[in-house]
């Protein structure tokens, strides 16, 4: 960017056309979403009740009873552990994988563009249905993947029916569906990076890995954070894939938050406990996202200020 342009950017006055305008612009969105607050507070209310649909006589306020019950239940902590493992594994692997693919497709040419759109296909397959198909493909009797594994000398791989490999299987499905999402975000980021620093580095003969770690990666951080944030929110709330695959089994090895809460409501009709589980999930999500967003703001200030 030329010096003149830079100066202009810094000196552009914030438009002050009526202090009300921005509020008016954001009001409709806010109003629509405010409606969500009502069921949210109702859910908070439920979480403080002992409320089981099959025991209508026993409904009563027990304030934090559900929460205490959950926090002292070793099974609940198992749920926390499984959810975190799932989230870290999927988000971590998808970030690395997505970044790698984005780097491969970095150059603007026809082939790369076509491939990047083609790679979106897994994302367009609804995760619930994708699970169904992966279930068939990993079926030990007819599944093409089981057959392939047997060919390379690994017969009898149990995929989702063995507690040791179940997590691997659902993480694999998640990676298959969602890596393209990260890839496309990071690709956009890569393509929009300014060329100048890279040209300078090339002219100066800076080695490639130095360029990557000291120039590319830091500039890419806002994108990485955004991608990680959205994936994190989805992963820790994962329902479709795991429910469709094993409903939380085998044993309790895949019982993540939303699957557990769903089963508690629809199968056990335990509204109070289900609501409490979801509130805890919400609190965790809120805290983590807060962290990410603060980071994002900091980075934005830095890049916009330093330009």
């Amino acid at each position: 960017m030329s010096d003149l342009a830079q100066a202009k950017l810094l000196s552009v006055p914030r438009m002050r056309r009526g202090a009300l305008l921005p509020y008016l612009l954001t009001l409709p969105a806010l109003l629509v979403c405010i409606g969500i607050l009502v069921p949210f507070f109702v859910a908070v209310g439920y979480s403080m009740q002992r409320y089981n649909l099959a025991f209508p006589m026993g409904r009563s306020f027990i304030w934090f009873g559900n929460y205490i019950g959950l926090l002292t239940d070793p099974e609940f902590w198992r749920t926390v552990e499984v959810s975190l493992v799932y989230t870290v594994a999927t988000v971590g692997i998808e970030l690395l994988f997505g970044l790698g693919i984005a780097l491969l497709l970095r150059d603007r040419n026809h082939l790369n563009n076509m491939i990047s759109v083609a790679l979106l296909l897994p994302l367009m397959t609804a995760p619930a249905i994708a699970s169904l198909m992966w279930k068939l493909m990993t079926n030990p009797n007819f599944g093409v993947f089981s057959w392939a594994l047997a060919q390379i000398g690994w017969p009898g791989f149990r995929w989702a029916s063995d507690p040791h490999t179940a997590m691997l299987t659902v993480v694999l499905v998640d990676i298959w569906v969602y890596t393209p999402f990260i890839m496309i975000l990071l690709l956009a980021g890569l393509r929009s990076l300014p060329q100048a620093p890279f040209e300078v580095a090339r002219l100066d003969g800076v080695p490639a890995h130095f360029v990557f770690f000291r120039i590319t990666l830091p500039m890419l951080f806002p994108y990485i954070i955004t991608a990680a944030l959205f994936r994190l929110l989805d992963s820790i709330q994962q329902f479709d894939i795991i429910y469709a695959m094993t409903q939380g089994g085998p044993g309790n090895s895949l019982l993540v938050f939303q699957v557990g809460a769903y089963l508690d409501f629809f199968q056990n009709t335990n509204v109070g406990r289900s609501a409490a589980e979801l509130m805890i999930l919400w609190a965790i999500t809120y805290a983590l996202s807060n962290l990410f967003v603060k980071q994002w703001y900091k980075l934005r200030e830095k890049t916009h200020g330093a330009a």
Binding site: M1, N113, I184, L185, A188, P194, Q195, L220, Y223, T226
Partner: peptide, 13 residues
């Protein structure tokens, strides 16, 4: 527009 549209506030060159 897809790739171009997803630039999220980074500085353009």
């Amino acid at each position: 527009w897809l790739v171009e549209g997803l630039s999220l506030g980074a500085v353009k060159g």
